[in-house]
Computed example of a mutant assay.
Amino acid sequence: MPDAICHVHEAPDALTLAQDLARFVAERLQEGVSQRGAALLVVSGGSTPIPFFKALALTAVDWPKVSVTLADERWLPPDHADSNERLVRAHLLQGLASQARFVPLKTADALAAHGVPELEVALQALPWPADVVVLGMGSDGHTASLFPGSAQLAEALDDGRTARCLAVSAPLLPNVPVDRVSLSKRALLDTRQVVIHITGLSKRQLLEQAMRAGLADPLPITLAWSRANIPCQVFYSN
């Protein structure tokens, strides 16, 4: 994996990786609190971050001064099994981290597009830039809910776009086929640090492919290292 693009932290197993990442993120959050009196963490859903969430929840940070939000959300009730909010509340906002302020990406509106204006207001009020944005990557190269071939992808990646979130239509299987809200590139890169958190050889190979220059159709994950002034870290294990 090209270390010149993103600095690579490799661990022997997923649990060690989760603990390493928790320490790294906690240090960045505490730096934010110490320097600015507040910190912001953006996290992603899926199964990969669960050990990381559990480790971070037990880590000493000035949590009452930390805000947490999501890179994306499925437009489902917050108690639904596929809700990222449910995942974060169950595994991250526990223990010491239960004192953090959580800003969800779901409203009571029936449609994601109808909820975007309210979410935009909530996002604008957060203490940007984020101290850390932790991204996952799907087997198709998507990150957040920015999917290859999506009708909303060009809008989400538009460097001139000022909005922080947008509604995204349901992706194809094997992704959960429900409408979503995703942070835009503008929001995902309004950060002091981008982290890509992946496990498994197939995802490593896909990430290495995405890092190769000259791809005719770059995968959405390439946004993570598209700004030279924003450090990108990869936390990886088999």
Rank of each mutant, 00 (worst) to 15 (best):
D3M: 03
D3R: 05
A4M: 08
A4G: 08
A11C: 13
D13Y: 00
T16Q: 06
L17M: 06
Q19S: 13
D20N: 15
L21H: 03
L21T: 11
A22N: 07
A26W: 11
R28P: 01
R28C: 04
R28S: 06
E31D: 14
G32I: 11
R36L: 00
A38H: 14
A39D: 00
L40G: 02
G45L: 05
T48G: 03
I50P: 14
A55W: 10
A55Q: 12
L56Y: 10
L56I: 12
T59E: 15
A60G: 05
D62A: 14
V66G: 10
V68I: 15
D72Q: 02
D72S: 04
E73Q: 10
H80W: 07
A81W: 08
D82A: 11
R86D: 09
L87T: 13
V88M: 04
R89W: 10
A90D: 15
L92F: 05
Q94W: 08
Q94L: 12
L96P: 02
S98Q: 13
S98T: 08
Q99E: 14
F102T: 09
L105C: 02
L105M: 09
K106W: 06
K106V: 12
T107W: 09
D109G: 06
L111I: 09
V116Y: 00
P117G: 07
E118M: 14
E118A: 15
V121K: 14
A125H: 14
A125N: 15
P127E: 08
P127R: 03
W128F: 14
P129N: 01
A130G: 03
V134H: 04
L135I: 03
G138Y: 09
S139L: 10
S139P: 07
H142Y: 07
A144V: 11
S145V: 04
F147K: 05
Q152W: 04
Q152E: 15
A154H: 10
A154K: 12
A156H: 02
L157M: 13
L157D: 04
D158K: 06
D159F: 10
A163M: 00
R164C: 03
L166M: 06
A167R: 00
L172V: 15
D179A: 11
V181A: 00
S184N: 01
K185M: 08
R186I: 00
A187G: 04
D190A: 04
D190C: 02
T191R: 00
Q193H: 06
H197Y: 11
H197E: 04
S202Q: 14
Q205C: 01
Q209C: 05
A210T: 03
A210Y: 03
M211T: 11
L215E: 14
A216I: 07
A216C: 07
T222V: 14
W225S: 02
W225Q: 02
N229Y: 12
I230T: 14
I230P: 05
I230E: 10
C232D: 06
V234C: 06
N238F: 05
